[in-house]
Amino acid sequence: MRYIEPHAHMVSRVTDDYVHLATAGCQAVCEPAFWAGFDRSSPAGFFDYFRQLTEHEPKRAAKYGLAHFCWLCLNPKESEDVKLAEEVLALIPPFLARPGVLGIGEIGLNKNSRNELKVLERHVDLAARHDQLILVHTPHLEDKLKGTRLTLDVLRADARIRPERVIIDHVEEHTVKLVLDRGHWAGLTLYPVSKCTPARAIDILDVCGPERLWMNSACDWGESLPLAVPHTALEMRRRGWTPEQIDQVIFQNPLQFLRQCPKFKLAS
């Protein structure tokens, strides 16, 4: 089995997790910029984080034959402070040319506030000006539906954004069709309790079809499962999916989206 892990926060994971990913058949891991679990006190904290994502983490992954890519932004949980956001956004353009940088992400909303929306619009503008792919985080739990709608409106309002170059992540049963109907890609996040279980993710694939959908673990510093994608592949087998159909979802689909960025290349 081969697969791509399109959303994992490896800076929060131990090296053993790289061993497990590689052993399970992972070909590449993609890491969106996110919240560290605490607020950074200055733009310099983000500068160092961007260096970690673009310099240090690829080396860590390479030891196990894994390609490592990343996305850059200021995450929605730290977007309430617009001044900080502007300073961090100004740091990003020089990083965009670095080899493993796929685009702007994971941007989006957290509590659906006015400032978060403002900062989301600025990130979308940054992506459009630099012709970058976009990875969107949608809010948690009771905030997801509203946040997804607000995000879709921001994306539609910017005529430079091509929907097929945007993936909207953490969709669930009540948001997946909203996203796909706008022509975007949608990410199914396999995360304990608060997001999709393997069974529900496969239900969504059964109902919506496998086009423009990918699955990810979004493993981070919280309780989460780095091997959630291969575990779900196992569940797909129990549900009667063929190896080819599974490969389509866990390898071909992320490949199809990610290679819209010419820098996304696999070893073989």
């Binding site: 509590k111 809010p139 948690h140 739990l141 009771e142 905030d143 539906l145």
Partner: peptide, 16 residues
């Protein structure tokens, strides 16, 4: 889910 459409004035917490 929150059924409203307008953004809230400010985020006072990070969690849901």
């Amino acid at each position: 889910s929150d059924p409203t459409a307008e953004p809230i004035p400010a985020a006072t917490t990070k969690s849901a």
